[in-house]
């Protein structure tokens, strides 16, 4: 036993964790913890002394100027909800199609995943031109005789948010697809054959076999989608910068706006709300979906 512990310690010394630990602690954990502290202070560019001011920042966010700060929070929730659902639905549909033995499956997979490799800011600028009043989308609607649908997609209050959501979905459905595809490919075909012999129809097969087996993929996609949705910054910054008005303002863009204005305490308070939302939702989703996973 003693020699085992000795071997263990010489083989797996803790010092090998240190490089990652030090970097991660100094540049990620300490800023995160400090941010929590500053969320409860008056820290801003104009004051010399930073002092604790309790929940004052949160009062400003939720009460004083009601909609200026509450709107970005509701926008973030709406954005995360719709992007998560659409990305997963489109991703799963494509994964099911590609899971069949179709020619050019790998090429299609690469094409669908490609937006993941491209900078969000670049995607934002490209879609600014597509959604421009004289841009590709409106030209296309004109071409197919749906010109009455033409819009100033990004500057109209009603269509700005759906447009930003659509671009985010464009960016992420491929990631969902590859993760679902990996899940689908892990299902042993003999389950389907056995069930078919017992007289199950396609819907039964999907609900009773496919869904339970891809639950791990559902969990990981849902968590990633929600986290990406909550954190969204670049895409909003490039497409609308929060406008028109604050129709597409989300928490991350508001954090940057308050930071640029020198309201560091307030900026940190918004960031803390984002941190809590992200952590809580990820834990909840993980709990809720992991119960239904099939373990082999």
């Amino acid at each position: 036993m003693k020699t085992n512990t000795f071997i263990h310690k010489t083989l797996y010394p803790r010092r090998m964790v240190f490089p990652a630990f030090i970097l991660y602690t100094i540049l990620f954990m300490i800023p995160t913890v400090m941010g929590i502290y500053y969320a409860f202070t008056n820290w801003n560019i104009y004051s010399d002394a930073i002092h604790f001011n309790g929940l004052d920042n949160f009062k400003v966010l939720f009460i004083d100027q009601s909609f200026k700060y509450v709107r970005p929070i509701t926008n973030t929730v709406v954005f995360a909800f719709f992007t998560s659902v659409l990305e997963a639905v489109i991703g799963l549909s494509l994964a099911i199609m590609l899971n069949r033995k179709i020619f050019s499956r790998n090429t299609l997979r690469s094409v669908f995943f490609m937006p993941q490799a491209i900078s969000t800011i670049v995607i934002g600028i490209i879609f600014t031109t597509i959604l421009h009043p004289t841009g590709l989308l409106n030209n296309f609607l004109d071409l197919i005789g749906l010109d009455f649908l033409q819009q100033n997609w990004l500057t109209n209050t009603a269509t700005a948010m759906p447009s930003v959501i659509a671009v985010e979905v464009w960016r992420y459905f491929g990631l969902n697809m590859v993760i679902f595809l990996a899940g689908l490919q892990g299902i042993d075909q003999s389950y389907y054959e056995a069930a078919r012999i017992d007289g199950a129809n396609s819907w039964n097969l999907f609900v009773k076999i496919t869904i339970p087996f891809i639950m791990p993929a559902v969990t990981i996609n849902t968590v990633l989608n929600i986290v990406h949705g909550f954190r969204a910054f670049d895409i909003v910054y490039a497409l609308t910068n929060g406008g028109p008005g604050n129709a597409t303002e989300v928490i991350a863009t508001m954090v940057y706006r308050e930071y640029s204005a020198g309201n560091y305490g307030l900026s940190n308070a918004m960031n803390l709300i984002l941190l809590i939302m992200t952590t809580v939702i990820s834990v909840l989703v993980n709990r809720a979906t992991s119960k239904r996973e099939v373990t082999l």
Binding site: Y24, I26, L27, F28, M29, I30, P31, T32, M34, G35, Y38, V223, V227, F230, R231, A252, V255, Y256, Y259, Y264, S267, N268, N271, L274, L275, T278, T279, S282
Partner: peptide, 15 residues
């Protein structure tokens, strides 16, 4: 935790 949590750029720039 770092996979899930959002970084804090404001305090990161301070450090």
């Amino acid at each position: 935790f770092g996979v899930v949590a959002t970084g804090n750029m404001v305090t990161t720039t301070m450090i």
